[in-house]
């Protein structure tokens, strides 16, 4: 599949933003992080909303006819893309109420009941949005590498782990104790890394329709003689890619090194020493790693249409 920059930016940025919001609300409601009062939570929630908004705005950049984008909110019953849009838009008023609650509670330290409720609802909406993003891809039977429960699982785990690492950075900048956050980041990065590994093993297995099932000639060898085109059409530009297998393999190593291993090691160091510079490095590397991971997610996806072109 063609890796559109706007979609990579969208899924990484809004995933991290929604993950950050989800983890911040969960941790602050449970009171697991000492020193994280309403004021500090507000900073994290605001950062998360900005990240989510950057992502959602960039997602409109891949539309060929954005003036009709508002129509995307009317097919909730059938389309995962529509569901994603609806959850993302519903999220904003709710998170605004939660932020007002945090603002009012920043002196007293106690959140009113409606603040608590809006926090819970906002975190559920964030969760639902990321899940829908994963399901947009997972629901396509035409792309065997995406048509799996592992895809939404990966999207959720990567959103939550990158959100937690960003929360560690925000906490470090505010002088909050980092033991719980860095420990949690480490655990989540390891789980997300293992889930991604599982995905890479699973897509290594050859699968999907072939030219034989496409033509109904089930036994003979078939090869393409002529595509009937003198140059690449929309179908080739959108669905096939010419990235060599060697580059793909190298990029997978990069994903692991930059996206999982180094950030995890940094989090381990933070866990033991609470150095404040390291979370910043971890966030930058992790986001770069996730951008490569998302690029690979598209590049490695092989749409069934390629079968007709003998690829």
């Amino acid at each position: 599949m063609h890796p559109a920059v706007s979609v990579i930016l969208f899924t990484v940025s809004s995933g991290a933003g929604f993950g950050l919001i989800l983890m911040t609300i969960a941790l602050s409601l449970m009171g697991w992080v000492p020193g994280m009062g309403p004021g500090q939570t507000l900073v994290a929630i605001f950062t998360g909303s900005v990240l989510a908004t950057i992502g959602l705005l960039s997602s409109t950049a891949h539309l060929a006819n954005p003036k009709n984008a508002w129509r995307a909110f009317f097919r909730f019953r059938s389309s995962w893309l529509s569901r994603e849009g609806i959850f993302a838009v519903l999220f904003y008023p709710v998170i605004l109420v939660y932020m007002i609650g945090l603002w009012l509670a920043r002196d007293s330290g106690s959140l009113p009941w409606w603040g608590l409720l809006s926090g819970l609802v906002a975190s559920l909406l964030a969760l639902a949005t990321v899940f829908c993003t994963g399901m947009i891809y997972a629901s396509l039977r035409t792309i065997p590498q995406w048509n799996s429960a592992l895809v939404p699982a990966n999207y959720l785990l990567l959103a939550i782990s990158s959100g937690t690492v960003i929360l560690t950075l925000i906490a470090a900048l505010q002088g909050i104790e980092l033991t719980v956050l860095s420990g949690l980041s480490l655990v989540l990065l390891v789980i997300a890394g293992l889930a991604k590994l599982l995905y890479y093993i699973w897509i290594g297995k050859p699968q999907g329709p072939t030219l034989n099932t496409a033509m109904g000639i089930t036994r003979a060898k078939i090869k393409i003689l002529e595509s009937g085109q003198s140059s690449r059409s929309f179908l080739n530009k959108e669905f096939s890619n010419q990235v060599p297998a060697k580059t793909v393999k190298r990029m997978r190593w990069m994903v692991y090194l930059v996206g999982f291993v180094i950030p995890a090691v940094l989090m381990l160091v933070v866990f033991q020493t609470s150095l404040t510079v390291l979370p910043l490095l971890a966030v930058l590397l992790l986001l770069a790693g996730l951008a490569i991971e998302r690029w690979l997610f598209f590049v490695e996806a092989r749409h069934v249409v390629n079968v007709f072109y003998g690829q």
């Binding site: 009709n68 129509r71 893309l81 959108e238």
Partner: peptide, 15 residues
């Protein structure tokens, strides 16, 4: 009504 998101072309196995 179409907004050009390409998702339907992704969902079509026949190009």
């Amino acid at each position: 009504k179409c907004m050009g998101c390409n998702l339907c072309s992704w969902a079509c196995p026949y190009g």
